[in-house]
Amino acid sequence: METVDFVVGQRIRARRVAMGVSQADLGKSIGVRFQQVQKYESGTNRVSASRLWAIAEALDVHVSHFFAGIRPASADSGDKSAPKDEFGFLKEHDAVEMLSIYRSLKPAHKHAVLSFVRTLTQDATVRRFDEAK
């Protein structure tokens, strides 16, 4: 079961790894030990609002970054604590690495990579983010 705490922790980890920041360095910048960062990332410990704000500043994102794509669980699942995470793929190391590489590309290369990946998917069930929601 994935709770919002777990999903937020995974987002913290994904962003930290994408930026090449160690748990110790993140901990130092927000005033906690690396073990506490581990607990945040695993969802074992909840992150307070003020601490999440500090983490967002340290990782150079808006605090809303950690909640983007989280949707309530479906009504028929009966489990209100298990949110749907549209960005759950960020748990995969390869996905984080790919995003990190993508961010470093020139705009023209980004467009070329995106066009190439779209040709690979040819599956109508893949949602394009530039289409109306």
Rank of each mutant, 00 (worst) to 15 (best):
A68D: 06
Q35V: 15
A68I: 10
T44A: 07
F67V: 05
A54M: 10
H65W: 11
Y40E: 00
A49V: 06
D79K: 10
G31F: 07
F67C: 06
I30H: 03
G43R: 10
G43W: 10
V61S: 06
A56H: 06
Q36I: 04
P83V: 03
V61F: 06
S50N: 06
L59I: 12
F34Y: 09
V61K: 07
V61P: 01
I70C: 13
F34T: 00
D79I: 14
V63H: 12
A58M: 15
L59Y: 04
F34K: 11
S77K: 04
S50G: 05
E57N: 12
R51G: 01
G31Y: 04
D79F: 10
V32T: 05
L59D: 02
I55D: 00
V37T: 03
Q36V: 07
S74G: 12
R51E: 08
R51A: 14
R46A: 09
F66Q: 03
H65M: 03
P72D: 04
P72C: 04
R51M: 15
H65N: 03
H62C: 06
S74C: 08
F67S: 05
S77C: 07
F34E: 00
H62Q: 13
E57L: 12
K28G: 11
K28Y: 03
G69E: 09
D60R: 08
D79L: 10
S77Q: 05
R71Q: 14
D60W: 02
V37S: 01
E41P: 02
A54E: 14
L52S: 01
S64F: 03
L59H: 05
N45R: 12
G69K: 13
R46I: 00
V63P: 00
Q38K: 11
L52I: 09
V47R: 02
I30P: 00
I55S: 02
K84P: 00
K84C: 09
Q36A: 06
A75D: 10
R71K: 12
D76K: 15
H65Y: 15
S42N: 09
K28D: 07
F66N: 02
K39F: 02
A82E: 15
F67Q: 04
Q38S: 10
G69W: 10
G43S: 14
I70P: 00
Y40P: 00
S42A: 11
S64D: 11
R51I: 06
A68L: 07
R71P: 00
V61E: 03
A56F: 06
P72W: 06
A56C: 05
D76F: 14
H65A: 07
S77L: 08
L52W: 03
A54F: 09
S48I: 01
H62D: 11
S42L: 10
R46E: 02
H65L: 04
F34W: 05
G78L: 12
A75C: 05
K28A: 11
L52F: 08
H62W: 01
S81G: 08
Q36G: 01
Q38D: 03
R51L: 13
S42F: 12
V47F: 00
V32G: 02
P83R: 08
A82G: 04
A54S: 14
Q35S: 15
